[in-house]
């Protein structure tokens, strides 16, 4: 039973990872691409790790998967934020479709 749920979670995680990478190709600029990678890849990888935990149970591998899950949840958003801020500060402009750009106004004052 646990193995079935584990494998289906791994498959769902793989689908989300794939969609995140597809977003990386399809979206127009740095910031929207970061959105796709930060969200889909985080949930996808967490899904894979949790599936691995269900698959392996409370063994050495399973516990390490849980630990990795916690660290990914804590660090992935931080890295996405730092990449977005660094890109903006070094002059990468948002794409033409951007409706409002209040951050640009605030740092150009």
């Amino acid at each position: 039973m646990n193995e079935t749920i584990g494998i289906s979670l791994i498959v769902i995680g793989l689908v989300f990872d794939f969609l995140g990478c597809l977003g990386l190709v399809r979206f127009p600029d740095v910031y929207t691409r970061l959105q796709a990678s930060a969200k889909c890849v985080t949930l996808g990888t967490c899904g894979i790790l949790f599936g691995l935990f269900l698959f392996k149970g409370f063994s050495a591998t399973g516990m390490k998967a849980l630990l990795c899950l916690a660290f990914i949840l804590l660090t992935a958003p931080v890295s996405a934020h730092v990449l977005a801020r660094g890109a903006y500060r070094s002059g990468v402009k948002p794409c033409k479709d951007t409706v409002i750009d209040q951050y640009g106004e605030s740092i150009n004052k």
Partner: peptide, 14 residues
């Protein structure tokens, strides 16, 4: 991501 028309309206807001 999957939508063929890519329905996005990006913005940076405060």
């Amino acid at each position: 991501v999957l939508h063929p028309k890519l329905p996005i309206r990006p913005a940076t807001i405060k």
